[in-house]
């Protein structure tokens, strides 16, 4: 009986202190970590079309189409198929692909989530923060260059 009363006292204490742990989401957006991995942003100016991201992607999410002169034509990324592992960002030698902190994206069909180059370029920053700067101090550790063959080109 005492244990039951203790249980009830505990919940009543929570009810009376009026504290809330949840947030009212659209009005109060969460602070996400600078390392947070959201939807991708692509920069065509930086991209050298080396295809490393396409090769490393565990899920075949990225599709790159180049012409016979190795000039990039298409950069397609299915953000619904992506597992947000950030390996593409890690292997990219020029920061052309970056996972923003933006987690607010939707689509009515699966096809809506297959982003083309233009859509990827227009992905907005979350709260206007470019996470690249905050990730800078850690860039050294992302992927050690290591020995062994370089498996692109």
């Amino acid at each position: 009986m005492i244990g039951m009363l203790k249980s009830m006292a505990t919940t009543m204490k929570h009810a009376l202190d009026g504290e809330k742990f949840t947030v009212q989401y659209p009005e109060e957006t969460p602070e996400v970590s600078p390392r947070f991995r959201g939807v991708h942003k692509f920069s065509q100016e930086r991209c050298i079309w080396c295809r490393q991201c396409e090769k490393v992607c565990p899920n075949d999410t990225i599709q790159i189409v180049t012409d016979d002169m190795r000039n990039g034509e298409q950069y397609n990324l299915h953000i619904g198929q992506c597992i947000y592992c950030r390996l593409c960002e890690e292997v990219c030698p020029v920061d052309a692909i970056l996972l923003t902190q933006n987690f607010e994206f939707t689509g009515d069909t699966k096809d809506d989530l297959a982003y083309s180059k233009e859509q990827l370029k227009n992905v907005p920053w979350y709260k206007d923060i470019d996470p690249l700067a905050s990730r800078e101090p850690d860039r050294e550790g992302w992927v050690g260059e290591g020995d062994g063959e370089v498996d692109y080109q």
Binding site: V32, S33, R35, F36, R37, I83, Y84, C85, R86, L87, E90, D138, G141, W142, V143, G144
Partner: peptide, 20 residues
């Protein structure tokens, strides 16, 4: 999340160490 950048699917460890 502060450490790994994600809340569930961390992908934080690497062979020979950690990512960040």
């Amino acid at each position: 999340e502060d450490l790994t950048g994600q809340r569930l699917m961390f992908n934080y460890l690497r062979l020979g160490g950690v990512a960040w």
